[in-house]
Design a protein around this nucleic acid. Sequence first.
DNA 1: TGCCAAGCGGAACACTGCTCCGTATATTCG
DNA 2: CGAATATACGGAGCAGTGTTCCGCTTGGCA
Lengths: 191, 191
Amino acid sequence: MGAKESTAKRSDARRNEKALLDAAAAVFVTDGVDAPVRRIAAEAGVGMGTIYRHFPTRADLVVAVYRHQVDACAEAGPALLASAESPFAALRDWVDLFVNFLVTKHGLAAASRNDPDGFTALHGLFLERLLPVLAEILDAAREAGEIRAGIPPLHLLRAIGDICAGAETAGPDYDARFAIGLLLDGCRYLG
Amino acid sequence: MGAKESTAKRSDARRNEKALLDAAAAVFVTDGVDAPVRRIAAEAGVGMGTIYRHFPTRADLVVAVYRHQVDACAEAGPALLASAESPFAALRDWVDLFVNFLVTKHGLAAASRNDPDGFTALHGLFLERLLPVLAEILDAAREAGEIRAGIPPLHLLRAIGDICAGAETAGPDYDARFAIGLLLDGCRYLG
DNA sequence: TGCCAAGCGGAACACTGCTCCGTATATTCG
DNA sequence: CGAATATACGGAGCAGTGTTCCGCTTGGCA
């Protein structure tokens, strides 16, 4: 799958897709990922039809825009595990990376909850790319005896995402990282 | 403040307000707190103008509908603290109460982040009524040496709310209570 | 009974997401 | 090189939101 001869797209189609990605990235920065579709289309200089043809759902567009950043986060996992002092330190570092990614993209985390499509596409991306990485780090930390057993990676990942999503509309005296630190400490609690 | 002689509302106004509250409560159960305004107005048998006159923002309506339940949760705090085996057990029970409240009202937690108004009114209600209660329980647990010092009640309350909000759109194999349990265990971690 | 302010209803506006189809054009084939 | 055709484009149009505004109704009172 993914050959290049079967999908010979027209040149203008390729160009528009690129324009759309650039425009979306720019608009997302200023208006958040919930920016009106018309605005993105206008920014890219294309019509409504074009945006929906290339990205049937908003989540598809969001995924396309941020995919390489998510990939980078995923790939940083094993590296962190190798370089950090301990698996738990790697866990902390990696979570920090993830949190930084989430909070710098306005509404990214929240978008995966509001849109029913976001569940499929955006959340699917997180699950597919990030979940195995987190699972690996958690396993290492558990084997090292730094955290207790029986912590499902899915639950930790979701909780982190949810807290970041909520933090976006919180006041300045609220720091999502504190609650997330609490979550990680909870993994260390042995009862 | 809150006298009865200065606000001599007309009888139909009082009747409509009650109808609106009943209708909203019913619609919230089936359609969630994000139900269209028109639907609530129709259910109550009133016009659009009426609903906005009585409840300028959706959050005002939500607050009015759930206020007594929030009050009940707040009042349960001291009782739990007195009856539970230990302050931390009371904390667990009380959080359970709060979580049950949140997850049974579809979209209640999430509503506080989508609406800018929700921040003011609904979140304000939580902060005003629930935060002192949580603070009291946390203090007791800290004094009993069950949790560590320096845990801001606001952060814990928000994190719990955020996790519940996110859980509403999660699959069946995700349990918000697990992550919240992790959070509470994090409070117990002494380093 | 008659007055009038408080209250009501819903049309109207502005803004969304999304679809649909006539038009334009990149590509290919003779 | 020019025509044929599938591919892609644009934006008008539809449906569904929240919110406002103002002419009409009605409860309460003298």
